[in-house]
Simulated scan of single mutants.
Amino acid sequence: MNANSKPHPFARKGRGAPTNATPLRFNMNERLADGDWLDDREMLDGTATKLRTEVIAEFPKSIINFNTSPDIPFDRSINAYRGCEHGCVYCYARPTHAYHDLSPGLDFETKLFAKPNAAELLRQTFAKPTYKAATLAIGTNTDPYQPIEKHNRITRQILEIMLETQHPVGITTKSDRVLDDIDILAKLAANQLTSVTMSVTSLESATSRSLEPRAPSAIKRLNAVRQLSEAGIYTHVNIAPVIPAITDHEIEAIVVAAAAHGAQSVSIIPIRLPHEVAPLFEEWLDHHFPDRKHKVMSIIMQMRGGKRNDPDFHTRMKGQGPWAELLRNRTEIAARKAGLREAKFGLRTDLFRRPTVKGSQLELF
Rank of each mutant, 00 (worst) to 15 (best):
A119V: 09
G319R: 01
A259R: 03
S267W: 08
N309K: 06
Q320N: 00
I72K: 10
S62D: 06
E363C: 08
Q192A: 09
S195N: 11
I271F: 09
N329P: 02
D310K: 06
L228K: 00
K344G: 13
I239H: 04
T96K: 05
E85W: 02
V225A: 02
V169F: 11
I158D: 06
P311V: 02
D107A: 05
H100G: 05
A48D: 06
L222C: 04
I182K: 13
Y234Q: 01
A259Q: 08
R226E: 07
I64N: 09
L340S: 12
Q320F: 00
T22G: 00
E283C: 06
L280M: 12
P244K: 11
K187W: 03
I254A: 05
D34P: 03
G14Y: 10
D75N: 08
N238F: 07
R177S: 15
R221W: 07
C84W: 03
R292S: 08
P270A: 09
K307V: 01
R31F: 02
K50N: 06
I219T: 09
R177K: 14
P18V: 00
F345C: 12
I299M: 02
I182W: 11
D291G: 15
A278L: 14
E250W: 14
K115C: 05
L280N: 12
R15I: 08
K13E: 12
M198Y: 05
W37C: 00
H261G: 01
F126R: 03
N27I: 04
R341W: 04
L193V: 05
E276I: 04
M198T: 05
P18S: 00
M297T: 13
P129Q: 05
L102S: 07
P9I: 10
T201Y: 07
E204G: 04
H97D: 11
V277E: 09
E282I: 08
F113M: 01
A48Q: 09
I251V: 14
L362D: 03
L326A: 02
L193S: 08
F10P: 04
T155F: 04
E325H: 10
Y131H: 15
D176W: 14
N2L: 15
I138S: 04
R177W: 15
T194P: 06
V178L: 12
A11V: 02
Y145R: 05
F289Y: 15
E230D: 08
T130E: 13
T197C: 10
N67P: 03
R348A: 13
M162C: 12
Y81A: 10
P73Y: 02
R15F: 15
D36S: 07
P18Q: 07
T125S: 01
D34C: 12
P216M: 10
M297A: 06
P144C: 10
P95I: 08
I158P: 00
K307T: 03
N152F: 15
L228E: 01
I154H: 04
Y131D: 06
K150E: 02
P355Y: 07
E283K: 14
E276A: 15
F113H: 10
